[in-house]
Design a protein around this nucleic acid. Structure first.
Length: 433
RNA sequence: GGGGAGAUACCAGAGUGGCCAAAUGGGACGGACUGUAAAUCCGUUGCGCGAGCUUCGGAGGUUCGAAUCCUCCUCUCCCCA
């Protein structure tokens, strides 16, 4: 492998130009250039799907592997039972065991989509820290692990300091030790030398390297990625609808594609570096093109394409583009009527669907009744009425401005569907049967 | 244990007997502009087509009339021990 290794990209260089390097422990770069390194990142099983926020870490592992190293994803079966206080101002509720197991399994399946698990020495691995914690008794833990780290050291951490006023349970306080031991365990038993993570994990990671040093006089390394910031200062990875998830059941491929497509220009430059595997040259060329014609949003399109394909599939990407064109393109009212039922359903796959009865429609439904009572697209009749009067309501891509208007069978597309729209971006497919 | 302050709509925060469905700011939603962007501007933001109805921590009371006054309860914050 030694000779082959020389051809690999330098991981640190790669992270640097992509803007993915926040802190790095001295000596890390030397370690990485010396051969294949095992590095890991931990994932917190707080939900049964990873979100786009976690994607930064997933991409770190992917770059790591592509740079010739061996990535390990750790799912936090044990740490998830404790709760990471980092960045949290309040004590967390504990997850019950059943939820935890479910979340772990789901996250594991998602991680498996990104990394190569069958490429010899550099094959990715997934480990669960519950495996080494389940038989570790409390007494053993405080003797073998707790003894090496002082309270003074632990208290100095940011995550602890920030909670000195509001309070923190012993459970959360001990979190850093539990995570620190993960690193020690992987270092000791699997030869893992590097831990990566978001910058908020620096404190926890360093507890690990410290434990390795004090307990075994060993050496381990660390680096972190910066917190992703959006140009407008709001939190990355959220939309009006909440978190953007990788699980298509939570965030449809269409919505997922739209999330990236809607990135601000300023943000898309950062995102394309972080979330795609495009080379520096490719990225810079795209940026030049984008500057020439910003309205084409080339950066956003390329970004959305690559990420959607990686997370979902080529097919999902194509459907998302098609749906986007129909929903946002020109001459759409007619195009909509001409869609086959199959295409129609494919295009609107990720759009919320509502059912109403055919009989009622045949009798004619007033537009306000339709939007408020029948479909609950608006939570009250008054709101529906105001929105219609304000010009924010469309049916089958045509604006409705009259509250007296009725809908009947002649408004159906393919004799079965009505495309209801609230504002520019919120679509509802009403199925009538 | 003693003393003080407070609880108002999604949030922050005015209002201290009628002019209050409740200022203002933020957020959210919609419109115009545009590039499905940013910035800006406009509108909406308890329910009802409307008369009107139900809201200001909870329960009672005073009054023609209460978010506003009184009583009790619950909770939060601060200071002293």
């Amino acid at each position: 492998m030694g000779a082959k290794f020389g051809n690999m990209k330098n991981f640190i260089e790669e992270l640097r130009w992509r803007g993915m390097l926040q802190d790095i422990m001295p000596g890390t770069e030397e370690l990485l250039s010396s051969g294949v390194v095992k590095g890991y990142i931990g994932f917190d099983p707080t939900a049964d799907s990873l979100g786009v926020g976690n994607l930064v870490q997933v991409m770190s592992l992917l770059h790591f592997q592509q740079c010739g190293h061996k990535p390990i994803a750790l799912v936090g079966g044990a740490t998830g039972m404790v709760g990471d206080p980092s960045g949290k101002s309040l004590e967390r509720n504990l997850l019950n065991e059943e939820t935890l197991q479910h979340n772990l399994a789901c996250q594991k399946a998602q991680l498996e989509k990104f990394l190569d698990f069958n490429c010899g020495e550099r094959s990715a691995e997934i480990v669960n820290n519950y495996d080494w914690f389940k038989n570790f008794s409390f007494l053993e833990f405080i003797r073998d692990v707790g003894k090496h780290i002082t309270i003074n050291y632990m208290l100095a951490k940011d995550s602890v300091q920030k909670r000195m006023d509001s309070g923190m349970s012993f459970t959360e306080f001990s979190y850093q030790l539990v995570q620190g031991y993960d690193f020690y365990y992987l270092w000791k038993h699997q030869g893992v030398r590097l831990q990566m993570g978001g910058s908020d994990q620096w404190g926890n990671i360093v507890t690990g390297t410290e434990l390795i040093r004090r307990k075994d006089a060993g050496e381990a390394f660390a680096l972190t990625t910066p917190l992703i910031k959006k140009a407008d200062g709001t939190k990355f990875g959220k939309t009006e609808g909440g978190n953007v998830w990788l699980d298509p059941k939570r965030t449809s491929p269409y919505q997922f594609y739209q999330f990236w497509l809607n990135a601000a220009d300023e943000d898309s430059k950062n995102y394309i570096r972080i979330f795609t595997l495009k080379t520096k040259e490719e990225v810079e060329a795209l940026e030049t093109e984008h500057l020439k014609a910003p309205h084409l949003r080339l950066l956003q399109k390329e970004l959305a394409k690559e990420v959607t394909i990686r997370v979902h599939s080529e097919k999902d990407y194509l459907s998302a583009v098609e749906a986007s064109e129909i929903l946002f393109g020109k001459g759409t009212a007619e195009a909509l009527m001409n869609l086959s039922e199959t295409d129609l359903l494919a295009v609107f796959e990720g759009v919320p669907q509502v059912e109403i009865s055919k009989n009622e429609l045949d009798a004619g439904i007033n537009i306000v009744d339709f939007f408020a009572d029948k479909t609950n697209i608006f939570s009250s009749r008054g709101e529906a009425r105001k929105m219609i009067l304000g010009g924010g309501v469309l049916v089958n891509k045509e604006k409705i401005d009259n509250v007296e208007r009725s809908l009947n069978a002649s408004d159906l597309i393919r004799e079965k569907y009505i495309l209801a729209q609230k504002g520019k971006k919120n679509y509802f497919l009403v199925i009538c049967e």
